[in-house]
Design a protein around this nucleic acid. Sequence first.
DNA 1: TTCGATTGTATAGAACAATAGACAAATACG
DNA 2: CGTATTTGTCTATTGTTCTATACAATCGAA
Lengths: 251, 251
Amino acid sequence: MSGQGPKQAVTRKSGVALWRQIADQIRQAVSAGTLGADGRLPPEMVLSERFGVNRHTLRSAIAALVQEGVLRAEQGRGTFVESRQKLSYPISARTRFSTGLRSQTRDRRSILLAHAVEQASQRVAEGLGLAEGAPVVRLETLSEADERPVSRATSWFDAERFPGYAEAYAETGSITLGFQSYGIEDYFRKSTLVSARHADAADLADLKLSAGAIVLVAVAVNVDTQGLPIQYAETRFVADRVELSVSTEAQ
Amino acid sequence: MSGQGPKQAVTRKSGVALWRQIADQIRQAVSAGTLGADGRLPPEMVLSERFGVNRHTLRSAIAALVQEGVLRAEQGRGTFVESRQKLSYPISARTRFSTGLRSQTRDRRSILLAHAVEQASQRVAEGLGLAEGAPVVRLETLSEADERPVSRATSWFDAERFPGYAEAYAETGSITLGFQSYGIEDYFRKSTLVSARHADAADLADLKLSAGAIVLVAVAVNVDTQGLPIQYAETRFVADRVELSVSTEAQ
DNA sequence: TTCGATTGTATAGAACAATAGACAAATACG
DNA sequence: CGTATTTGTCTATTGTTCTATACAATCGAA
C-alpha cells in the first residue's frame, strides 16, 4: 500500500527494533517495485518522516540493507537499488533446482559444504521408507545465483542403495547427475511441504543473512520411476530472494 | 537439532530482542515436538542456561508465548504446552480451503470482512485474463480454526461474469458454494506462487499477531472446467500455525 | 507440616536502541 | 565558483532491554 506520502506503520516496544522493522518494509517495497522503481530511493529525510522516526534510525535500516546487498548508498548522490529481482523456483513433479532457475540468472552453482553417513532419524526414515536407524548419506549443500546465496539444503539418501553418493555429487555437482551414476535416468518430486520461519543461527551464517531474516522451508521427497523414495531433502530458501511456484495443471 | 543439552544460538544486537528470538525458537521446537513432547517444558532455569540468557529474559519469551496461547504457566507446577498442532493446508488441483482442513480441526469458519467493486489492477487483470481497469469484485475474508485466525485472503472475481458474488458468498459462507449459484459445479487450482514475509500492520491486526510474525503468502489462480480464470486470490497464512502441503504425484 | 522445586514479583545497574542537533564531505547544477 | 542537496560522522540525552540478586507464592510429596 502507498508509494508516496502516507505514513508507514512501525510498532514500538514489540521486541523488534524500529530500524529492523523499517529495513524489512523497505526491502519488501523495493522487491515489489513500490519503492525505488526508478532505481533510486527517496532521501533519508523524506523516508524518516514517512516512517515517523529519527533520521539516524532510518539510517540504521539502510545500513543493514546495504550490508545485505539490497541497496547502495553514495555520499552526496543518494541511495540506490542494488538488486531487486526475486527468483521464481518451480515446484512440480519434474522439479530440479538447476533447470528451474536456468533462464532467470546468469551464474549459478551448488557447493557441497559437508557430508556424512549417519543413522536415519524417525523423520528421515519415514521420508525414505527405511527403518529408523538405517544408514543414510547426509549432504549439506549451498546454492548460489549471481554470487549470492539462495538456498541451503540438507539431503538424505539410502546409504545401502547409494553408497558414496557424496562423491558422485562432488564430482558432478548436481543431484540429477549424481543419480545417473547409479543408473537412475529419471525421477519425480512426490511431495513438498512448505513452511516459513525465522532463519536460525546456522542459516544466518551460511546464507549471509542478518538476524530476523525469513526462510522458506521446503521438505521434499523425490521418488524414482518405480515410485520408491530416493531422496529426502529439507531446503531453506532466502524468502527475500525466492518465491516458490506451484503448478497444479493437469500433468 | 537437540532436544536436551546443547546451547541454543541467539544473536545479540541484531535488532531483534533476545526474548523474541527465544520465543520464536521455543514456538518452533514445541510445534516440531522437540521441546515439551510430554506436554511439559523444562524449568525456566534450565531453559535460560540452555539459551545463555538471564532467567528474566527467558521469562519474557514465555510470557509472549502464553499471550499467544502456545504455552500455559502454573505457579509452583511448571510451564505446559497449550496447543501444538500445525495445520497442514493441501495445495493441489482440487484445493479448497474447507475440505482440506476438515479432518484436522473441530471448529472452522470464514468471515467476510469487506467487499467492493473496483477496477482491476495490472496484476489482478493479468491473473483473471481481463483488461486492466475492468470491473472486478474484491472480497476480504478471514478464516479461523478453533477460534484462532489462520489466514487472511483477498480475492478478486470478474464483475461481469459474477455480479454480486459478494452476496452469494455472504449467504453461503463458502467460495465453492458461491460459485455454484453461478452454475459452476467444479473448478481447479491452476497455479500457486508461494512466498514469505513479515506480517504488515494490517495482517498483524486481522490475524491477531505480534510484530515480527511471519506470514506465508500464496497467490493463486482458480479456473473453471474450460480453463478460464474465475478467481485470483492472495492468501496470507500465519506461518506458525500453518504449513502448505504440495502434492505432485501423477494426477 | 516441612521441604524442595517451580513460577511470580521487585529493584537497581549495565548494555543497547532511539532521539536530537550540529557539522563535515561529496555530488550536481546553475 | 557558489549553492543546494544528499549522505557520513560526532556527541549528548532519554527510554527500553537485559542482567543480577533477592525474596514471595504456590504446588507436590515426604
